[in-house]
Design a protein around this nucleic acid. Structure first.
Length: 281
DNA sequence: AGTGTCGCCTGAATGC
DNA sequence: TGCATTCAGGCGACAC
């Protein structure tokens, strides 16, 4: 499940492979994803140069010559496969789009559950586009500060776990990192957002930045093998403190989980929440 | 405007 | 062994 760190890693890989190359041709293999692939996309992409690859929230932005941006969201199960020049690769099930680059590499978007999306947007209208206009600040930017979070949480009485995943407030914090950041900050996920004191919000702000940075670093460490990238970006899962650890001790904890019950699992807003009832109050 | 719920999808895991 | 059911979840749409 790609979250911000995984997207960041994909962007870094794409930069290495695709920047300064040209899309000699592309092939839309299936338009059927959450938001259908635009009509005549292949025609629009033909012979466009890739100027840069960046990220906004969990969106991959491929900046093209001619002022267009190819926007890709990986959804739940999306993958970017990069195939070396000269290697003939069979089409895989659930491949939706393939880009043939002038340097011989192929970039393939594969998405079994079809929660992803592909859009072609004018660079100048990106920020006013319906997908981007309502997005909050980047969690790793200076704008996402303790004082910012303190001010926006004042009007939010919902549980902090749910609130922090609201992308109009801050982008890129999905279910996994919401759980991990709240553990790091020692805050119970059910706590009403507006009832957190300033010290707690400050801890949460720093915790969000810390867990995201750690995950990006873990992803980055696999970059030297990027040519073998098969899209398996779950490398950070081995470091989870609480996520998907129901009944087990939280990471680094020496308590007897058999006696205490270990990490608890609940459901908030239809999503699984994992937390340690002894460390998160 | 904030809040809660639903649905899109497939495949892995689980249940009988 | 095999079929049916459950679960995973980003995010827009919608109702209140």
């Amino acid at each position: 499940m790609p979250e911000l760190p995984e997207v960041e890693t994909v962007v870094t890989e794409l930069k290495l492979v695709a920047c300064a190359a040209k899309i000699t041709s592309s092939k839309t293999l299936s338009q059927k994803i959450r938001i259908p692939v635009p009509e005549k996309l292949d025609l629009s992409l033909k012979n466009k140069a890739i100027l840069d690859v960046t990220r906004r929230a969990k969106y991959i932005l491929i900046h093209l010559s001619g002022g267009k941006i190819l926007v890709i969201h990986l959804g739940m199960s999306g993958r970017i496969h990069i195939h070396d020049a000269g290697k003939k690769v069979e089409k895989q099930k659930h491949d939706h789009l393939i880009l043939h680059l002038s340097n011989g590499n192929d970039v393939v978007f594969n998405d079994p559950r079809r929660f992803g999306l592909i859009e072609l947007i004018d660079e100048e209208s990106l920020n006013s586009h319906r997908l981007f206009s309502h997005l909050g600040p980047e969690p790793l930017s200076r704008k996402f500060s303790s004082s910012f979070l303190i001010s926006v949480l004042k009007s939010r009485k919902g549980p902090i776990k749910v609130v922090i995943m609201d992308q109009t407030l801050v982008v890129g914090v999905g279910n996994i990192y919401a759980c991990e950041a709240l553990f790091e900050a020692g805050i119970h996920p059910e706590t009403s957002a507006q009832k957190l004191n300033e010290e707690q919000v400050d801890r949460l702000t720093q915790a969000i930045k810390k867990v995201l940075k750690a995950a990006i670093k873990a992803g980055g460490s696999t970059l030297k093998d990027y040519r073998k990238t098969n899209g398996d970006l779950g490398y950070f899962q081995h470091q989870f403190a609480v996520y998907d650890r129901a009944g087990k001790p939280c990471k680094g904890c020496d308590c007897d989980a058999g006696q205490t019950g270990g990490v608890q699992k609940t459901v908030q807003g239809g999503r699984s929440t994992f937390y340690c009832p002894r460390k998160q109050l």
